[in-house]
């Protein structure tokens, strides 16, 4: 569909939704610079909450743990997701392929309390049977996040593989390249933008996850979302405003940057398609 201009009704609905989406976030950012301890009363401009935040050891160490888990689980989920995407998009039908496809989509929509609880019970049983994993912590959280993230990664990679022109791979095979070589020299470079965006997606999902983490974390491992949650439960807290502001800014920069790169890649793809 391509229209020429946005209608009046369209402009109205867009501006309403954008203010609905952004006003709460802007207020949140504004009050992170509030001098008053009362979050809802403006007491002048101050950067004190950022100082408090950076000196808060609990926050700093929780952030470190979250970052570590997010890097590890996004890397693994991208590997698994590419494999799963290949299976679903490129391999012919095999027995129980639909079960596989079903298990891929389910974690995406399944309420996280369900996924979290069931995985926890698995680990408890495993510990009783094999004594492993000995305790809940980074490893168990990592497994949970990988399972959640690989579903998203698979969906992104799979749809890219499905729309990719397969004759390019066939041409490589025709010119003497073996399947493994085709995958690394042809398929991977072509779907690289999709891989990058799914990596970003997996990273943000993992670093943001609270519910699955809550079930799978042990006493020694508190991630940033868990820390925020425990503080927010007690009420409004200007330090959290400061933390939220940093999160929002980081994500905005990351997403806009990634989007630019993707738009460029997309443009090239479109131009190629138009030229042929």
């Amino acid at each position: 569909m391509n229209g020429k201009n946005i209608s009046g009704f369209g402009k109205l609905s867009l501006s309403l939704v954008f203010s609905f989406l952004y006003v709460p976030i802007l207020i949140l950012i504004a009050y992170s610079f509030n001098a008053s301890k009362l979050v809802t009363v403006w007491g002048g401009f101050s950067k004190q909450w950022y100082t408090v935040l950076f000196n808060d050891d609990a926050v700093v160490s929780a952030f470190g743990l979250s970052l570590q888990i997010a890097l590890l689980s996004s890397a693994m989920s991208v590997v698994l997701g590419i494999l799963a995407g290949l299976v679903l998009a490129r391999f012919g039908p095999f027995q129980s392929k639909s079960l596989f496809a079903g298990m891929i989509t389910a974690p995406m929509v399944m309420p996280e309390v369900i996924t979290g609880l069931s995985m926890l019970l698995l680990f408890v049983e495993m510990q009783q049977w094999f004594g492993f994993p000995a305790e809940r912590g980074v490893l168990t959280i990592w497994v949970g996040h990988v399972t959640l993230c690989m579903a998203y990664v698979t969906v992104v990679i799979r749809s890219r593989l499905v729309e990719m022109d397969r004759s390019v791979e066939e041409a490589a095979m025709d010119l003497g390249a073996r399947p493994l070589k085709i995958f690394f020299q042809i398929t991977l470079p072509i779907i690289a933008p999709a891989i990058a965006s799914s990596l970003l997606l997996a990273f943000t999902l993992s670093i943001d996850d609270l519910v699955i983490t809550a079930f799978l974390s042990g006493p020694g491992s508190t991630t940033l979302p868990q820390l925020i949650f425990s503080r927010v439960r007690l009420g409004l807290n200007p330090e959290i405003n400061a933390l939220a502001t940093i999160t929002v800014l980081a994500v905005t920069v990351l997403v806009i940057g990634a989007n630019r790169v993707m738009v460029k890649a997309e443009l090239r793809r479109v131009r190629l398609a138009a030229a042929t």
């Binding site: 989406l21 709460p24 976030i25 949140l28 927010v232 409004l236 994500v251 905005t252």
Partner: peptide
């Protein structure tokens, strides 16, 4: 439209608490 989706879920809920 998608930018808020990328930001933390908790942060978005917290924004409304204020």
């Amino acid at each position: 439209v998608m930018l808020p989706f990328w930001t933390s879920f908790l942060v978005r809920v917290y924004a409304w608490m204020g």
